[in-house]
């Protein structure tokens, strides 16, 4: 059926290149693995079911939900995935919504602004750039801008972080057999002491190495994500060694790219524990822009720590299925 229907615009080989096109916009190239592997089956199924207008893509793509069964639509997604002839690309079924604190395992192309306001009114904005490298890796650079809670306030750039992440294990999962998708990635954060630690009390004042492991899976319709990280300062008189552990559970309220996703994180650093209930919302038709907000509520030492407001604004600017041409 690919040949009779889809190939009319997407070509027999999935490249979207045909001799006498009947549409004015050249379709996406499904032989490009970074396009065909990056997002979950559900996103592609919705694009076929609702057509371009339903997912913020070209209105020239018709919807098939009134003419095909869900099984037939899933079959087309599997066929489309098959146009990527290279092995080793992590399957997009492991690309779960990003929690606010927990580092997700799937490599991403995105730009984020992460604001945070602590109970004593320390304000931080982190600009974070993430870009995929090759099939399974990613690097990121984050630059924080901090306004301290001291009197008078000190404002300045905090410690710049450079991180690298590599997916070591991934399993696409199989809805038919009930096998959940699974992904595990290893990474390392390097914290550069660019903040004025001595003068303003911003930043750690020492280099930190932060090796971490991130993992994700699904349980029924629930996203489960976790991260374990060591924070290892070079100069232990300036910063403490720490063990950081984050776990997230959440679920979408619909299959639409602009769905609401409700979740909660358990965030731990040494003996300090917090719960961070949060809500995420896709802001555009393709979900290329999304925002999340949460409240980090301490579970111990409540008086000293208080509630911290956290969140992000995310732009998947390089993701082919999201960033419309």
């Amino acid at each position: 059926m690919w040949g009779a229907w889809c190939a009319r615009c997407h070509a027999q080989d999935g490249s979207g290149k045909i001799d006498e096109p009947t549409v004015s916009v050249e379709p996406m190239d499904f032989t490009d693995c970074k396009l065909t592997t990056a997002e979950p089956d559900a996103d592609w199924e919705r694009a076929i079911a609702k057509g371009g207008p339903g997912v913020g893509l070209s209105p020239l793509m018709p919807g098939f939900e009134d003419s095909l069964t869900a099984e037939q639509i899933s079959g087309f997604v599997a066929h489309m995935r098959g146009f990527c002839k290279e092995t080793g690309w992590p399957n997009g079924n492991n690309n779960f919504p990003r929690p606010i604190i927990t580092e997700k395992a799937f490599p991403e192309n995105e730009f984020l602004i992460l604001p945070a306001v602590s109970h004593d009114r320390e304000v931080e904005f982190v600009a974070l750039y993430e870009q995929r490298l090759g099939k399974r890796s990613m690097f990121e650079v984050s630059v924080p801008a901090v306004s301290t809670a001291t009197t008078p306030r000190h404002n300045g750039l905090g410690d710049i972080e450079i991180a690298f992440k590599h997916t070591v294990f991934t399993n696409a999962g199989n809805a038919a057999t009930g096998t959940a998708p699974r992904i595990v990635s290893l990474g390392m954060d390097f914290v550069v002491p660019s903040g004025d630690h001595e003068g303003k009390g911003i930043g750690h004042g020492t280099v930190l190495f932060e090796p971490f492991i991130s993992a994700g899976t699904m349980l029924s319709n629930w996203y489960l994500q976790g991260q374990f990280k060591m924070e290892l300062p070079i100069d232990e008189t300036k910063a403490e060694r720490a063990v950081v552990y984050n776990a997230y559970i959440g679920r979408d309220t619909s299959a639409a790219p602009n769905t609401w996703t409700f979740g909660v994180e358990l965030n731990g650093e040494n003996h300090e524990l917090a719960l961070t209930p949060q809500v995420r919302k896709g802001l555009t038709g393709t979900g290329a822009l999304a925002a999340s907000i949460g409240a980090m509520v301490p579970l111990n030492e409540r008086e000293e720590r208080g509630v911290k407001w956290v969140g992000y604004l995310l732009w998947e600017f390089l993701e082919p299925l999201r960033a419309r041409k």
Partner: peptide, 28 residues
């Protein structure tokens, strides 16, 4: 017995709907 689509557009080009008709006898 061939794939047709019905794309309905307003005067300013906005798509109201675009549905596929891949098989004869279908009604949407």
């Amino acid at each position: 017995p061939i794939l047709h689509t019905t794309q309905a557009q307003t005067e300013n080009g906005r798509t109201i709907f675009n549905v596929a008709l891949p098989v004869p006898g279908i009604n949407i």
